[in-house]
């Protein structure tokens, strides 16, 4: 299984990932997964990530003393990215199959 951004969350992540993959392959893909059965494990995992973010933020800053990440933490960055995605999702969902011509 892939590792977590926060090594201290690897264990909860693995528990959640295993649950999800089992649910996904055995239920969702067979059209029987209307409900996410791994929500409780996901909350544990998410909680771990949230608690770990302050450490992560300082780790990134110390690796990157002059960088653009200095002023804002990664949690804010994610927040922004998520906001950004909401907009593009809305566009994406409205879009019909219109492909952009290849430019050479």
């Amino acid at each position: 299984m892939s590792s977590s951004l926060a090594p201290e969350c690897n264990e909860v992540k693995e528990r959640y990932d295993s649950c999800f993959l089992k649910w996904y392959s055995e239920k969702y893909l067979r059209g029987k997964g209307q409900k996410d059965e791994c929500a409780a494990l996901f909350n544990d995992y998410k909680h771990c990530l949230t608690v770990s973010f302050p450490t992560l933020t300082s780790r990134i800053i110390s690796d990157d003393p002059k960088g653009a990440l200095k002023e804002r933490g990664i949690d804010k960055m994610l927040e922004e990215a998520r906001e950004d995605h909401k907009d593009s999702d809305a566009v994406h969902m409205r879009r019909t199959c219109k492909f952009i011509a290849e430019q050479n």
Partner: peptide
């Protein structure tokens, strides 16, 4: 080169 992967949100 991929060091880690995390799910940060998931919903049906």
């Amino acid at each position: 080169h991929v060091l880690s992967s995390d799910t940060i949100s998931r919903s049906i």
